[in-house]
Design a protein around this nucleic acid. Structure first.
Lengths: 165, 165
DNA sequence: GTCAGGGTGATACACTGTAACACTCCGGCA
DNA sequence: TGCCGGAGTGTTACAGTGTATCACCCTGAC
C-alpha cells in the first residue's frame, strides 16, 4: 500500500500484515513468558489490519459482535500491554494506535509520518536525528527517558496523485 | 526557576513572565490587526503564570470567580486563537498548554522538555536536529507540514536534587 | 437604523481515559 | 480434593478532553 522501501526494516510493519505482526508477537510473548491472550491477539489484529490509526473505541466496536461485547476499558488494558511490549505505538497527536511489527527494545528513536491526506501512518528511524537530539538534550542538562516525534504532512503516495482525497 | 540559559532566546519564555508574554502578544496583535480581547488576555495570563502545562478545564476554573463563570468552550476558543498566533503551544502528550513568549513564525523546530519530577516544561530549538530530520523526511519522500517533538525525562534542576518530588 | 461579522455565553454531546469491584481461570500446594 | 493467590477480563461508573450548535452582544459599515 505504501512501499517506499528503505525507511523500513522489512515487511510486516505498520499495518497491512496482520498475520506477520501476530506471529511475531506470539513468539516474543512465549520468549518473555507472557500471556498472549485472545483479547490481546484480537486487539493487535484489529490495529495491524489498518495503516491508519485506530482509537480505542473504534477497536472495541470492531471486536464486538452479537454475543461478544468488548468494552473500551478492556481494549485499553490490552493496548497498555501491547504498547509496553512494543507491538503497537500510541500516536499522541491523534489519541490513537498503530501496530508495529519490528519490536524495538523500547520504542526509542521512532519517527512517525502521518499523512494528512490519506491518514496513513508510516514509521521510520533516524540515527542522525537521534544523535543530534542527544547532543541538544545534553547541552540543556536534560536526561531523557522517552520521547515522541510525530510529523504531519503529505506522504509520497499522495504527493504523486495530488487531487485525491 | 529554571535558568540554564542558552537553550532559550531570552527572558519571558515558557511561563514565569506573564507580563512580558502579555505585552508581547498585545503588540503583535496590534501589528496583525487582531483582537486581543479580555478573555484571550486572561487565558494567556493564566497559562503564562505557570511553568507546567495547564489543561483547558484548569484554566476555566482559574478564570472563574463569583460573578464570572468561564466555560471550557470559551477557553478552547481562546486557546485556538493563541496557538494559531504562536503565543501558546499545545503539549500533545499531556493534552495541555504552555505559553511561549518568543513568537516563532509557525511553531516550527521546537523541542519540548517535560520533566517528570517537577512537571516543568522547557522549550528549546535545535537547527541540527531540524536539519537531520529534514534529510530523513526527504529520503522517505515525505513533505512535512508540522511536527511535534516532546521529550520526557529529568530536568537539570531535578537532577541536582535527586530526592525531591 | 439596519445589517453583517467576530467574539462570547450556554447547553448539549461525543470522544478519551481511569477507578473500583466482581468474576473466572489456572497453577501451586497442602 | 480443596484451598489459595495472581493475572486477565467484564462491568459500571465517572473524570477529563474536545466539538457542535444556537443565541446573544458588540462594533463598524452602509
Amino acid at each position: 500500500m505504501h512501499d517506499h522501501a528503505e525507511t523500513h526494516d522489512a515487511a510486516g510493519c505498520c499495518g497491512g500484515d496482520a498475520e506477520g505482526a501476530i506471529a511475531r508477537a506470539e513468539r516474543i510473548c512465549r520468549e518473555r513468558d507472557l500471556q498472549f491472550t485472545r483479547l490481546r491477539r484480537d486487539v493487535l489484529a484489529a490495529v495491524a489490519a489498518q495503516t491508519r490509526p485506530l482509537g480505542a473505541y473504534d477497536i472495541a466496536e470492531r471486536l464486538s459482535e452479537p454475543g461478544r461485547r468488548v468494552a473500551a476499558v478492556s481494549v485499553y488494558r490490552a493496548l497498555d500491554f501491547l504498547t509496553e511490549q512494543g507491538f503497537v505505538h500510541r500516536i499522541a497527536s491523534r489519541n490513537a494506535f498503530v501496530s508495529c511489527g519490528h519490536a524495538h527494545s523500547d520504542g526509542a528513536g521512532l519517527v512517525f509520518l502521518i499523512c494528512r491526506s490519506c491518514g496513513t501512518i508510516d514509521e521510520t528511524t533516524s540515527p542522525e536525528v537521534e544523535h543530534q537530539l542527544g547532543r541538544t538534550l545534553a547541552k540543556a542538562g536534560f536526561k531523557p527517558v522517552s520521547r515522541i516525534l510525530e510529523v504531519e504532512g503529505e506522504c509520497e503516495a499522495c504527493l504523486g496523485r495530488p487531487t485525491e482525497a
